[in-house]
Design a binder for these strands. Structure first.
Length: 271
DNA sequence: ATGGTTGTCATACAA
């Protein structure tokens, strides 16, 4: 069985439900993980997803900010929502796929939206950056103590860190820019190592090939300038990494009408 | 060195 999971920071699921429909009609992943849904659970467009063939829906929303969701063709056996850094932010949701999911049964999918961290990369003067670093530390501790990737697990999301040299358009120019500072890139690497996760995208496309999943709205001609960053990730537990078949970063979605600043990332496994 | 855009909700804040 071929199993596919996508992750997409949609920057308001209500505003861009037609773009989600276009993506699902074309790519049809088994599971889609969304970040920055920006609405409370009652406002989530569940009916539209059901109509598109995604009847299984797990939501952790909040008013105006953040918000994550997982929509699926395959049924869930359980849903877990965790809170981080002693805040109520909706930045994580996980599902376990049910026996009825066939070969994908018992796969757990964690969907994260790590704090962006504000503009100034100094935790002493920027509380948002301090929060981001604390979040990374908590994730490392989570990986070390709870072993979330001990078996059949996938971690996806907008991790808001471009960890490697060729995950940004200019390593040198972004060393002091939030998302690519050494404390963040080393922090995310610590998270990955502590959990024993495998970076699926970089396994298929190793450095030094450049990979981006996000282009700022502030660049007037994003495609020509191509000043992107790889902020969106798919990580696999070791036992699933051997089943990795392919990946797709849908760059063209950045050029759709009224786009998100992030594009969908899809990984396919042979289970 | 600076300002550039977007969404939500209310005219500020987060990204």
């Amino acid at each position: 069985m071929s199993f596919s999971v996508s992750t997409w920071n949609i920057n308001s699921v209500r505003l861009r439900i037609d773009l989600v429909a276009r993506f699902l009609a074309g790519r049809a992943p088994d599971v889609l993980c969304l970040q920055e849904t920006k609405c409370i659970d009652d406002q989530f467009p569940s009916a539209a997803f059901r109509k598109m063939g995604y009847p299984h829906i797990a939501i952790s929303g909040q008013k105006g900010y953040h918000g994550v969701a997982i929509v699926s063709r395959l049924p869930f056996a359980g849903v877990e929502i965790r809170r981080w850094c002693a805040k109520q932010d909706a930045r994580h949701i996980a599902v376990r796929l049910a026996d009825a999911a066939g070969a994908a049964r018992d796969v757990t999918i964690h969907n994260f939206y790590i704090p962006a961290g504000g503009d100034v990369p100094d935790p002493a003067v920027n509380e948002k950056f301090a929060h981001k670093l604390r979040f990374l530390d908590e994730l490392t501790e989570w990986g070390r103590t709870e072993k979330p990737a001990a078996s059949r697990a996938i971690l996806v999301g907008d991790l808001n860190v471009a960890p490697y040299v060729n995950d940004v358009w200019s390593h040198k120019q972004l060393l002091d820019v939030v998302s690519h500072t050494p404390v963040e890139t080393e922090g995310l690497e610590a998270v990955r190592m502590a959990g024993d996760w495998v970076d699926a995208i970089r396994t298929l496309t190793p450095e030094p090939e450049r990979i981006y999943t996000w282009w700022s709205y502030r660049s007037p001609d994003w495609a020509a300038a191509n000043k992107g960053r790889r902020l969106d990730h798919v990580w696999l537990s070791q036992d699933l990494a051997g089943h990795l078949e392919g990946a797709q970063i849908l760059r063209e979605a950045r050029g759709w009408e009224r786009p998100s600043d992030h594009v969908p990332v899809t990984v396919t496994l042979s289970l």
